[in-house]
Design a protein around this nucleic acid. Sequence first.
DNA 1: CGGAATCCGCGAGGATACTG
DNA 2: CAGTATCCTCGCGGATTCCG
Lengths: 133, 133
Amino acid sequence: MSGFGPGDPFLADCPGRLAIELIADKWTVVVLYGLSQGPVRHGELLKLIGGISRKMLTQTLRRLQAHGLVRRHAYAEAPPRVEYELTPLGATLIDPIHMLTEWARANGAAVLDALDALDAGAEPAARDVPDRS
Amino acid sequence: MSGFGPGDPFLADCPGRLAIELIADKWTVVVLYGLSQGPVRHGELLKLIGGISRKMLTQTLRRLQAHGLVRRHAYAEAPPRVEYELTPLGATLIDPIHMLTEWARANGAAVLDALDALDAGAEPAARDVPDRS
DNA sequence: CGGAATCCGCGAGGATACTG
DNA sequence: CAGTATCCTCGCGGATTCCG
């Protein structure tokens, strides 16, 4: 009934954990989502994502590239142009990523509610507690 | 063919992003995975996960609890015992999490290979490059 | 056994300015 | 437009210790 033993791949140190920690990152998920519909330019992602800095975008893309999930395409043109796209390996992540993002879209409000319910319940509760200032 | 516009929920600041950033975290995914099969004791998770510290485990659980994904159950017994389990809201995450972890299990090796291929291709390449020490 | 508090180092990550 | 370098700050996250 335990389900997984002490040696389960995701509970120990193994390639699986490496892969999880590669994508379980604040920006990585959103960047992958941005790439999930086809090649995108650097500047497009930058404007699209909102909140990300150029540094973090480049850094995230570079890490994904180094791990074989993203391919970089630089065109030698007058106005320099660079596009990023998922590799075949990276494309296998589209489904998991979309499940995550759809979950977030559907349940983001509920998560927010839970937070607010906490705040509304905890802070006024201090009302009937002798406050030692 | 752009697919998503400039206002896509996951590319801007919104509840969906909050939800993504809640779970797109080094430890959160693994902890949720550990909870995905039923109630687990604090100490069990600690030993099971491997690499996590008590502090980070508690901290992660607390954050998930505050966001309504996890419920805490403390039993007033001689040897104190505390169990954690997913709330109904948290249970809706099981499928996405399992897709992620199964992807990692299947492709962790490929990711590792991509990394090694880079190292093997880049560093020996310095062989035929005049190295200015 | 489970958790909170404290100390502290190091690296994530933003802002800015510069190169090609 | 894309990328890099530099600086600086904040908080992640480990180790340790004390409380219930």
